[in-house]
């Protein structure tokens, strides 16, 4: 199991109406590692990310084909339940989006949705809350004001909270869509540090526009261009000795 890829996609194609955004994606994402998705705007990296929790599908005009296997199951098979899928595949967004409820309720939101009423207890909730907030280093700062509105926190804390609220669900994969693009450099550094710390436990996929960030944070990197994967390799290899000229041009800033 440990060596098996966490996500395997075979010939994934996706259309927004008439426009084909993904043109046959074959990708193996290593378990327990951080994989960066890079490429210029419109290359399909965010679209691909959103295939993994099937959040693209809220639009009726999106059509997806091909096979996309997570932990051995094709997540586009008819028996797949979206609620179960999203429990296992969490997502962090570009702009921190804590829910307009208390810090405590934010962290426990998913946990409560997926725990039967009979099994819920104040004690179990307190434990889940403390453990999740400790994992993102917010416990000491926030433990005395867990009843405050999460939307009033600083952006860095909001984004960490958005990561924390995934943890009680024990996801196997966390998708991050430019998680630091709304943060200042200091906050970015802290969130990156957090991402590095929680890696290992989860498979993390991170979309980023920021080359330096991809280099700092990811173990492996995938370079995409107009709906296709150009190159996929260990981050240091891809940045130091790219195999494809287009990769080299992009990371050196010749386009994009």
């Amino acid at each position: 199991m440990a060596n098996q890829a966490s996500i395997e996609t075979r010939d994934v194609r996706l259309w927004y109406g008439e426009f084909q955004a993904l043109k046959g994606i074959d990708l193996d994402v290593s378990r327990g590692r951080i994989t960066g998705l890079i490429g210029p705007s419109g290359c399909g990296k965010t679209t691909l990310l959103r295939c993994f929790n099937r959040i693209n599908e809220r639009y009726d005009y999106v059509r997806t084909e091909g096979s996309l296997i997570i932990d051995g199951h094709n997540i586009y098979a008819p028996d797949v339940d979206l609620i179960e899928l999203r429990k296992r595949v969490g997502m962090v967004f570009q702009r921190p989006n804590p829910l307009p409820i208390s810090i405590r309720d934010n962290v426990l939101y998913g946990y409560r949705l997926h725990t039967p009423k009979a099994e819920r207890s104040r004690g179990a909730e307190d434990e889940a809350l403390e453990s999740a907030l400790k994992s993102v280093q917010l416990w000491d700062i926030l433990k005395d004001r867990l009843g405050d509105r999460a939307t009033r926190l600083q952006l860095e804390q909001q984004q960490k909270l958005c990561i924390a609220r995934l943890l009680p669900l024990k996801p196997s994969i966390i998708l991050m869509d430019e998680p630091c693009s709304a943060l200042d450099p200091d906050a970015t550094a802290k969130v990156e540090e957090l991402i590095r710390q929680i890696a290992g436990e989860f498979t993390i996929l991170i979309v980023t526009h920021n080359m330096a960030q991809a280099r700092r944070v990811s173990d492996e990197c995938v370079f995409m261009l107009i709906g296709e994967i150009v190159e996929h390799g260990r981050t240091e290899d891809l940045f130091i000795a790219p195999k494809d000229q287009r990769t080299a041009d992009y990371i050196e800033g010749r386009f994009g």
């Binding site: 609620i83 179960e84 969490g90 939101y109 998913g110």
Partner: peptide
């Protein structure tokens, strides 16, 4: 804001929840 709905859906909430 739509961002709240996204947050809730991606945590595995149904539309009604």
């Amino acid at each position: 804001p739509v961002a709240f709905r996204h947050a809730s859906w991606t945590l595995g909430a149904s539309r009604w929840q």
